[in-house]
């Protein structure tokens, strides 16, 4: 039995060094050379400043912008802080939880108040919180739902805004993987450039 102590210790230390130090270091080095932008977080910069990551959603509340999905993330003290990139997470509300129904009703009310003219049913992703709380996307339906409000607030032609949404709509990858989506941050940045 005693015999196993040296092999155990040496095997553990050697394998720890290989898988816990060498492996992540090599992958980091290779990533930096081959995929520098992705490895650093696909950051979007303007005037030398980081304004966000194209993969991480941001809290948009201005009627002039397209809004992303509700986010259930909190700050270090547990207070709501939507799209907190340092503390990802979801609501974990059960489908049977009355709080979920209440939250959805409140979100519908906010959308209706911001745009009384659009009266159809609300696309589900626009009133349910995402898994990460950082979802950068909404469905094309959720974008279409907001076109009237955004165009009106910006004094733009609705058709023009709709075209922009179309141009930013990404189909399921390889035709069948995942759902169709629109990146909210990229769409809003493009909106700023629209004249």
């Amino acid at each position: 039995m005693n015999l196993q102590l040296r092999p155990a210790l040496v095997a553990f230390i050697a394998l720890s060094a290989i898988t816990g130090l060498a492996y992540p270091a090599v992958i980091t080095g290779l990533s930096k050379v081959i995929f520098p932008k992705q490895a650093a977080g696909s950051l979007i910069k303007a005037d030398g400043k980081v304004i966000g990551s194209e993969l991480i959603g941001q809290p948009f509340t201005d009627p002039r912008d397209f809004w992303g999905r509700p986010s259930a993330t909190v700050d270090a003290n547990g207070k709501p802080l939507p799209y907190n990139g340092a503390n990802s997470g979801g609501s974990n509300l059960a489908p049977s939880n009355p709080d979920l129904k209440k939250a959805v009703e409140e979100r519908i009310a906010v959308l209706r108040a911001a745009d009384p003219d659009t009266t159809g049913p609300v696309p589900v992703d626009l009133v349910t919180s995402s898994a990460s709380g950082l979802d950068p996307h909404i469905s094309p339906a959720a974008a279409a739902f907001q076109v009237h409000r955004v165009a009106k607030a910006r004094g733009l032609d609705e058709a023009k805004v709709r075209d922009l949404v179309m141009a930013h709509t990404e189909p399921p990858q390889l035709g069948v993987l995942g759902d169709a989506k629109v990146n909210v941050l990229k769409l809003n940045l493009a909106l700023e450039r629209l004249r």
Partner: peptide, 11 residues
């Protein structure tokens, strides 16, 4: 235009 379904807690 949308995947739909039970989207609470999904991306």
């Amino acid at each position: 235009q949308q995947g739909g379904g039970n989207m609470e807690g999904k991306e």
